[in-house]
Structures are given as C-alpha cells and as structure tokens.
C-alpha cells in the first residue's frame, strides 16, 4: 500500500466538528486527538463510545459536543455494537464509516472479548483505543495497561507492582487488517494513519497514547511535551503493522538514526505518578527500552 501524501498544518482542513465548551479537563490530550481525528474521518461516520472520558466530553442531553452521531454503549460490548451498526449500514447500502472509540480500560480489560471476537470475524470497522493508562474518568484506578511503578488511587503507596499489558501486541496476534500506534503529541501522524485506515477493508486498530494531566500528575501545559518525551525516550514507539509487517513511522523512524535516545529517567521524573518508582525499576525499564531499540536498529538498518 502506498503512503498517502502527508498532511501538514497548512493543508489540514479548517472545518471543526467538535465544539468548545465541553466537559473535558483543561489540557486534555484526548481533546486534541479527538478534534484532529474527526477531521480525518469526515462527516460520514458514526461513533460507538463506551463509558469513558469521551462520553463525558460529549456532554449531557440536550447539547452534544460533536457534530457526528454518537452511540453510547456498555463497557463490554463496544466492538459488538460497532459490528451491529456496520451491519445495519450495509443493509441500508451506505458506506458510512463506523468508529469505535474506547479508553484503555474499555479495550484492554472489560471490552477485550468483544474486540477479540470482532477481530477474528474481520469486521469492517475502525477501533481506536486512547490509552491514558488508568481508569481516568472514574478517578484514576489502575487498569491493565497501567505501567509498572505507577501510582493510582488503587495502588496509592508503592505503585502498581505488575507489568502493564502490551495491548498492541495482543491485537497484532489476531492479524488485523491494519494496526498502528500513535501519540496525542503528534496529531498529524494520527490524522494520516486514520486516512490510511479509512481506505482499508477489515478491522483497523489504532492505539494512541494520551497524556492525562490530572491522572499522571503533570501540569496542564505539559501534555504535549510529555507525550513527545515518551516517544523520544523510546518508551512508546510509533509503528504500523500491515500484512504482518511492522514498520516504524514518523518520529520513531527518525529516532533510528540517533546514536542514543533521551534517558527514560527524564520521562519518569516529569510525572508525579512515578514518584514511588525505585531506581532498580527505572534501570530495568531503561534496559528493556535499550534492548528493544537495539532490536529495531538491527532490523531496519
């Protein structure tokens, strides 16, 4: 598949589909993503959203923050509902895009069986997981993707002791039509990957790391800087998998040329949630990142 022309700030459409004055927190990473993501999807789409920050952002009856139709479902059935909506659209003979947009809890913990089923059936939907690494909407409880050592309200003193799930790898094991990881700090990269996903038939899965100021313990203005730090330290890689072939993309691809990345410690120290993270844990994390990137360098150079 050919890479589509790159979107830049200048040729990105000025038309807005999300209204200001919504209930998202100040400095929300999801707000940036959602605003730019919907521009890529266009008007002809239906959203399926389980309970998450995105539901809160959409707001309460009678005003909605988005101009697109949004169907709020239950936690466990996001992908199943999207399957049903897509089937209805097929029956009506419409090419409407169905987009399931769920948080990390709704994807990695509660909604994973429905998603796994939809992946296996190869449903023609786009599934977007915005990963803020805990149940932020209900008050920062630990989730499956919460990284080791992270403080949450359910792991308040020494941080989470277990290692977080590598969700994209779980999805990749299902052989989806398209899989990509993105970051809220690179909204244009997300925009282009969505444009690409729109052209592909089958289940398209996008995993987006989304910094959350209240949950991660950062100042509101640091959202974008922190997401960038996660990519530049090599902790979160941006890649896409098409036909089983992994390819680093955008900012992560540029990192391949660098001899050494920013130390992981820098990223950890920016956040209050890693205050209890011990030196050994940080060193182990750094070793993990180094090993992974050594593998990438061998593979792509």
């Amino acid at each position: 598949m050919k890479m589509a022309a790159k979107t830049t700030v200048l040729n990105l459409t000025e038309e807005e589909f999300v209204h200001p004055g919504n209930r998202a927190c100040s400095g929300c990473g999801l707000s940036i993503l959602y605003r730019i993501g919907v521009k890529a999807l266009g008007r002809d789409c239906i959203f399926v959203v389980p309970p998450s920050c995105l539901t809160v952002m959409q707001g309460l009856y009678p005003i909605a923050a988005t101009q697109m139709p949004v169907l709020n479902g239950t936690f466990a059935s996001t992908a199943a509902i999207a399957t049903g909506v897509k089937a209805a659209m097929r029956r009506l003979g419409r090419a409407t895009q169905v987009v399931a947009w769920a948080g990390d809890g709704g994807t990695s913990d509660i909604g994973i069986q429905a998603l796994s089923g939809a992946l296996e059936r190869g449903e023609d939907i786009i599934y977007i997981c915005y990963d803020n690494e805990a149940y932020m909407n209900t008050g920062v409880q630990r989730s499956g993707t919460t990284p080791q050592g992270s403080l949450t309200t359910t792991t308040p003193f020494s941080g989470k002791s277990e290692v977080g799930k590598n969700l994209p790898a779980i999805i990749a094991a299902h052989n989806p039509a398209y899989l990509a990881t993105c970051s809220a700090s690179y909204p244009l990269d997300f925009h282009d990957k969505l444009l690409k996903a729109k052209q592909i038939k089958g289940l398209k899965y996008l995993h987006v790391q989304t910094p959350c100021p209240p949950g991660w313990g950062i100042e509101e203005h640091m959202t974008v800087a922190l997401g960038r730090a996660a990519v530049e330290t090599g902790l979160f890689d941006l890649y896409e998998i098409e036909d089983g072939c992994l390819q680093l993309t955008g900012p992560s691809q540029q990192l391949l040329g660098k001899a050494c990345l920013r130390p992981v410690r820098e990223y950890l120290e920016m956040q209050v949630r890693f205050k209890a993270c011990s030196d050994e844990q940080a060193a182990a994390l750094q070793a993990q990142v180094d090993q992974r990137w050594a593998g990438y360098r061998d593979k792509f150079k």
Partner: peptide, 30 residues
C-alpha cells in the same frame, strides 16, 4: 493545531476565544 478546545483561530493574526479558553497553556508551552 494543538489547542484541545479549538479556541485559537487559524488566521494570520491568531485570535483566542476567551469565552471558552480553559487556560491550559499548551499554546504558550508549544
């Protein structure tokens, strides 16, 4: 591009809609 609340205009002289600006400061940081 990076304003979460879509209150900055894409004009030659950018304008900020203070009615809805939540004051996160991402624009100033970036």
């Amino acid at each position: 591009l990076l304003c979460p609340d879509n209150v900055v205009s894409k004009d030659i002289e950018p304008e900020i809609d203070l009615e809805y600006c939540k004051g996160c400061g991402i624009c100033a940081e970036e």
